[in-house]
Computed example of a mutant assay.
Amino acid sequence: MAIRPAEQLIHKAAWLYYAHGLRQDQVASQLNISRASVAMYLRKARETGIVNISTSTQLFTDDVLARKLEDALSLDAVWIAPENDHIADPSTEIAVLAASVFLELVKKGDRIGVAWGRTVYMIADIMSYADLQDVTVVQLCGNLGAPYSYRPDQCTMEIARRLNAKGLNFYAPLVLSTEELARALRAEPVIREQLSGVGECDLALYSVGAVDADSHLVKCGALTSGEMAELRSRGAAGVIAGQIIDADGKVLDCSYNRRVISAELASLRAIARRLMVVQEDSKFEPLLAAIAGGLCTHLVVGARMAQRLLDHAGATTEKAS
């Protein structure tokens, strides 16, 4: 695609500054524009993806706490976002780190499974643009009718757009009105093929949902707060790709789960790299359930959550000994 004349100066400024290492005043002199214009063009180059600045996430995996947590929880890799008084919004820092980690994990030709939620959509929205070859992004569960930007189809297609990849949406509702209808829909060839292909993904990106009144399932109308409370009393501990899991990370035996159109947990576990990102400290119990169920191999969390996980693992080991 030809570069429009209006973009030529942006490209030239970015090339001189990033590729040739010229200072902003030198770029301004060479292009015969003001230094303020150079700064504006460089900002536009970053915002539109003309320039993709990536930083190594090694700093966040070299942390001693991250190493201890990997050993304690038997995870392949852990990245810990810093949390201190100088950071206005730690949850954003976690999403920024997760976006970088995700881009490092994606390989040429990968098939990527994506779930939904505010965390996943924030990662997609923050993620740098990349031009990856032969990458496919697939939706892991059915869709929602609620007008949220973090619907499953929105998360899937935004990540595909950022990666310049092929996006495959799941054209089925997340939850059906009856168990019989759900069984019939899962038996449809197109839906059956989509569900059976999830285990062939190379990488998964998701978070774990809460099982309280603030749950996405309650807010989108899939369950009432009363129904969620009842499921919690029966052992509900978290939500993965629209499915409710118990404290052991297993699918809770309930009518809701039997009405859900989503990849089976066994298919999710078959994905080699399962990147879980958790922003909220309130999701400690759901995260424990997801880890117990083998639904996470790679983890991005904040420092407070990391310490809680390590303390819990230590306490559990002491009880067992």
Rank of each mutant, 00 (worst) to 15 (best):
S74R: 11
V138I: 15
T119R: 05
T224C: 08
V175Q: 03
L205K: 03
G167W: 03
N32Q: 11
R35I: 09
P5M: 09
K319N: 15
A204E: 05
V300N: 00
A290I: 07
I245K: 04
L103K: 06
Y148L: 14
A213G: 14
I261K: 09
I87L: 14
I271Q: 10
L181A: 11
I126M: 03
R46L: 04
L288R: 02
A229W: 08
K283Q: 07
P90F: 03
P90D: 13
L176S: 07
E264A: 15
R234V: 04
I245H: 08
V251K: 12
A88L: 13
H11P: 02
D71T: 14
L65M: 14
C141N: 15
A98C: 10
C141Y: 04
M305E: 02
N257Q: 15
Y148W: 12
H312P: 00
T119K: 04
Q133S: 15
I245W: 05
L75A: 15
L309F: 00
A187T: 14
N84D: 15
Q133T: 15
Q139N: 09
L231P: 01
G235L: 10
L295I: 06
A184I: 09
V211M: 12
D134R: 11
A247F: 10
V101N: 02
T136S: 05
V278N: 00
A13P: 00
H298L: 12
R234S: 14
G113F: 03
N52Y: 01
A236T: 06
I94G: 05
S282I: 06
V78Q: 07
V138D: 01
G113R: 01
M157I: 11
K68R: 12
A241R: 09
L265M: 14
L231T: 02
S233M: 12
K250I: 11
E280N: 10
A315P: 02
L103Q: 09
R118Q: 11
A187H: 12
E193C: 14
M157S: 06
V135Y: 00
D85A: 14
